[in-house]
Design a protein around this nucleic acid. Sequence first.
DNA 1: AAAAAAC
Length: 474
Amino acid sequence: MTSSTSSFSQLSLAPALTQAVAEMGYEAMTPIQAQAIPVVLTGKDVMGAAQTGTGKTAAFSLPLLQRLLRHENASASPARHPVRALVLLPTRELADQVAQQIAQYARHTKLRSTVVFGGMDMKPQTAELKKGVEVLVATPGRLLDHIEAKNAVLNQVEYVVLDEADRMLDIGFLPDLQRILSYLPKQRTTLLFSATFSPEIKRLAASYLQDPVTIEVARPNATASTVEQRFYSAHDDDKRRTICTVLQERGIRQAFIFSNSKLGCARLTRALERDGYRAAALHGDKSQDERLKALEAFKQGEVDLLVCTDVAARGLDIKDVPAVFNYDVPFNAEDYVHRIGRTGRAGASGLAVTLVAPSDTRLVADIEKLIKKKIAVETLDLPPARSRQRSYAHGERDTDNGADRGGHFAGRPVRGARPVRMAPPDPFFDRPYEAPSVNDAAPAWESKPAPTSTARQLKARRKLPALFKPAGSV
DNA sequence: AAAAAAC
């Protein structure tokens, strides 16, 4: 029951690794590390459940590097560097982050590592791959591109890590994963990490893991006890003001704000910027460059509010975020746990505020059921809306069209109400009058239809049951 | 209801 080792120095890791760990300031192991490292060192398959922020990356990468160091690849010619370990993740940011960590752990060794993910030029990635790497971190789509272009040869892979496996299945990566795994030698070690052990995950494990050791630390879906969770009722029109009020009352500077949609994310960011906040958006319609910049600016403290979709819900390791806001109640209760896991990390105290619209009651019930905790929906007293229209208004405003609150009535004059502002002089005067938008309608360049691939996703999902084969039936 | 990922 008690683990025999509790600090990294007690592990018999190679000096190069011990040194890197020490330089990074790590001493005590987290529970997942204490449990997983000895098992991974034996070379067994592992099925691990651990929350993000538990030190999962070190838990698999340190013993993995250790094994790569100790066991030379006999079949490889010394001049070449075949990929010996492959780590797959669901999002680009996660892949980047994990790759950086691995590079840190490996920096005193001769082992080389690199990362490939979409949204970036193929060429530099190809060049890195051609130079040869022992450890390759990737998102599935781009890895397949590289495999097909013969940039990556995976027939010497000894270890594969499927991280955030449940998320990868959610995204519909199963067919991609199956294709990638088909390129790997059968004789290998497979490590699978997942927030939950859903039936789908168990089936994936049954297909691709051999006699795995199951490791489960901290109850999955448990929320950190250091996080103060609050639910405030808020109509869409009041949501932004509620957030600003909480920020002010609590004296909070930095926070994550989660929105359920990319468009909502873009709009909210613009509105907050106009309110004078330093905000940045992080979602899938942003270029990869913008995504990385937004994250970095937030880390550096150049941006206070990071407005994001669930692309950022999982695993991003950002220290000391004092608060998380759910501008929208997440569709999946599980995502709630991941989102608020951005705060209250490593024993720090955190605040998680969820804005609940009247139509969200069912989603709230789902969350309460998952976290096994009742949370009262409170009403927050908001300061009166300040009228940003006043300077434009001619005469008293006798109607409330929600404009002040940036609501969805904004810019849409209430029938029978006097327009708030005269239409600007317009040579095309017969064009229908559009009230000035105090709403955050994204400019045309930002509201271009999302290049979704829902159709492909659905197709992939439809194929899903057929693609699942019981273990052993090739 | 939407989001995540390859061009």
